[in-house]
């Protein structure tokens, strides 16, 4: 371990740190549960006679009013700029920016938190593994815990892991302002205006629509198996039943796809969905997009020049 700085620490410090981490994670889980439960309580039938924007009902924030095309370009561009940074500190700044976007858009926090939690497993792997597997370099600081001398803890690895987690969270937080502030068809239309082939956009919408149909079908079939005594176990028999189950799911979806296509054709489908919606561009759209991209650019420059991410 040529030249790396070694710091010796007693083992309980490591255990303590792990405990604190696990505690934080559990706490976050609990909070999310509470938040979600709170969100669902006023379950009255929503008024569907007004156009609602996916998930975040009736928003009128700056994000909701933003032209979809500009929003897509600006936030996607911003995401790539964030990903290009290297230091955990710039990731932290990016998180703050993204978080302010969530607040600005007036979106419920619970959904954003759920997205973060969904990837927490994958990211936790980095946090646990990177410090142990990062290759020691001369400038690195290694923590050596008593009793675990053969497993030095590389602080640079921790830094790398934190940067990754930070960037992932920053982009994940952007997803809600990006997608939940306009209806999906509108977002897709924005995409097609930006050059994504119209057919591909329609495919996304169709797949999204039938996702729910198949989820329901899959759920009913699972219940059907359950009431005949099927329980998932670690066994070949279980795998065989799962194989049949998947097969049945595919058969039903292939059959449905033909029926759907028939129905489309019989209402005059000739290869394209008619959807001439209207986009109005204002100066504020330009301004907003430009400022997001500039922010991202500034962050990247700051990261590369000052924080010394090389």
């Amino acid at each position: 371990m040529g030249g790396a700085e070694l710091i010796h620490l007693p083992l309980p410090v490591l255990l303590g740190a792990l405990l604190v981490l696990a505690g934080c994670w559990l706490l976050a889980l609990k909070m999310l549960k509470l938040a979600l439960a709170g969100e669902q309580e006023p379950q009255q039938e929503r008024d569907w006679s007004v156009p609602v924007i996916d998930a975040a009902a009736g928003g009128s924030s700056i994000f909701h009013r933003w032209d979809v095309r500009f929003k897509l370009v600006a936030l996607l561009g911003f995401a790539f700029l964030v990903v290009a940074t290297r230091s955990p500190w710039s990731a932290l700044v990016a998180i703050c920016l993204s978080f302010s976007a969530v607040l600005l858009a007036g979106l419920p926090l619970a959904r954003s938190m759920r997205r973060l939690l969904a990837m927490s497993g994958f990211l936790a792997m980095f946090l646990l593994i990177m410090p142990l597997t990062a290759v020691p370099r001369p400038a690195d600081t290694l923590l050596v815990f008593s009793g675990l001398e053969y497993l030095p803890f590389n602080l640079r690895g921790l830094q790398l892991a934190l940067a990754i987690i930070g960037k992932a969270c920053a982009v994940a937080l952007l997803m809600e302002p990006l997608l939940a502030t306009a209806s999906l068809p509108r977002t897709i239309e924005g995409l097609t205006r930006l050059g994504v082939p119209e057919k591909v956009g329609q495919m996304i919408l169709l797949a999204h629509r039938y996702l729910f149909v198949f989820l329901e079908e899959a759920r009913r079939m699972a219940t059907g198996m359950q009431v005949r005594g099927f329980r998932r176990r670690t066994s070949i028999a279980t795998l065989q039943v799962m194989g049949n189950y998947l097969g049945m799911l595919f058969v039903r979806s292939f059959e449905r796809t033909h029926r759907v296509y028939d129905a489309m054709q019989s209402r005059g489908y000739q290869g394209r969905f008619p959807a001439p919606a209207y986009f109005a561009v204002s100066v504020s759209d330009w301004l907003l997009a430009a400022s997001w991209l500039l922010l991202g650019l500034a962050l990247l420059l700051f990261d590369r020049l000052w924080l010394g991410g090389v």
Partner: peptide, 13 residues
């Protein structure tokens, strides 16, 4: 369009 519908079932599986 048919691939799209079938994709939904892959997603579910």
């Amino acid at each position: 369009p048919k691939v799209a519908v079938v994709t939904a079932s892959f997603f579910v599986s």
